[in-house]
């Protein structure tokens, strides 16, 4: 995601914002800075990039507390994320065996209507422990439908 943001920046490393474009991208991702703080991006020559960046950041706003950004158009419902999810593995016997969890089971991820959904983001290891503790759903997603940001 950081790479995508950098691609939408002027990449001149002019330091007018006080840092390099890569560092600025990091602050944009965390939400500590906004695009308005990049003077170069306001120039008409960069209007296209600015629009793309706005769109990208708007999609980021839709991410869950756990950092999950799910692109449902890419998901084919293979259920790999549900099976490799650390919380699901520890708490659902069905998931350990590769099956989908029952409706009343408490799980972090499940597949509904052919697409993965965060059943309860508060159960995600990234929230329960730390964001860097787990990224298995993203790492194993064959269609890159799940991005953790």
């Amino acid at each position: 995601m950081l790479k995508k943001i950098v691609e939408c920046l002027p990449q001149t490393d002019c330091q007018m914002c006080g840092m390099t474009c890569a560092d600025f991208a990091g602050f944009l991702l965390s939400g500590d800075l906004t695009t308005a703080e990049c003077p170069v991006l306001q120039e008409p020559a960069y209007a296209e990039k600015a629009a793309a960046l706005q769109e990208l950041l708007a999609s980021l706003a839709r991410r869950a507390k756990s950092g999950h950004l799910i692109d449902v158009s890419r998901c084919n419902g293979c259920g790999i994320c549900v099976i490799v999810c650390e919380y699901n593995l520890a708490n659902s016997a069905a998931c350990r065996l590769g099956k989908g969890p029952a409706a009343d089971e408490k799980v972090a991820l499940r597949v509904v209507n052919g697409q993965v959904v965060l059943a309860d983001e508060n159960l995600c290891t990234r929230l329960l422990q730390a964001a860097d503790k787990c990224s298995k759903c993203q790492d194993h997603c064959p269609t890159q439908a799940i991005v953790l940001v």
Binding site: C75, N76, G77, C78, G79, K99, G100, P101, A103, R110, V111, V112, N113, G114, Q115
Partner: peptide
């Protein structure tokens, strides 16, 4: 109206 644990092919 709702199908759980089904992939895209199955949903179709």
């Amino acid at each position: 109206v709702e199908a759980a644990n089904v992939c895209q092919w199955g949903l179709a």
